[in-house]
């Protein structure tokens, strides 16, 4: 069951059980919702954009360990980053997951160097039906960025 160990790495279970930045933002923010009607997973994402950067974010919703961990890891990966940096991380994530076609962005000599905890999600690639679970927070983020008109 090597594939299962690869899929459900400790860091994924940690984010699933202790998700970062749960809740809603008060004050000015943009809101986006991501729903997967076939499985019922849902995300409610708030981001605050100031001076071309994401200065705060919060996330709510429910779903499987893969979608929830991906959302929690996304919080760590985007808050405090410029919009350009966030777009870069999102692009690398989608390459790593095989959602977008292109070169593997990871440095396998140095695990975690490129995408941090998010790299733990690469095991999901062996479970094609679950890739959309990992991607849901990121499609929600893309919608939030569009609404923020950045």
């Amino acid at each position: 069951m090597a594939d299962l160990k690869e899929l459900y790495r400790q860091v994924i279970l940690d984010h699933y059980r202790n998700p970062r930045r749960r809740g809603k933002l008060s004050g000015p923010h943009v809101h986006a919702e991501g729903l997967n009607p076939s499985c019922g997973d849902e995300f409610f994402l708030d981001i605050r954009v100031e001076d071309g950067a994401i200065t705060d974010a919060a996330i709510e919703g429910q779903g499987c360990s893969i979608s929830q961990a991906s959302g929690s890891m996304m919080m760590d990966a985007i808050v405090g980053k410029t919009i350009d940096e966030v777009r870069g991380v999102s692009g690398q994530f989608k390459l790593m997951m095989g959602i977008d076609e292109g070169e593997d962005p990871l440095d396998h000599e140095r695990p975690g160097a490129v995408l941090g905890d998010l790299e733990a999600l690469q095991g999901v690639r062996k479970f094609p039906v679950r890739i959309k679970c990992a991607d849901l927070p990121w499609t929600t983020l893309a919608e939030a960025l569009e609404r923020a008109e950045v």
């Binding site: 499985c39 779903g63 499987c64």
Partner: peptide
Amino acid sequence: IHAHDVATILDQYGIAVRAG
């Protein structure tokens, strides 16, 4: 354990259940 995770794990053991 979310139902989809249960179903993925069971599938690795050849067991087909519905989740959702």
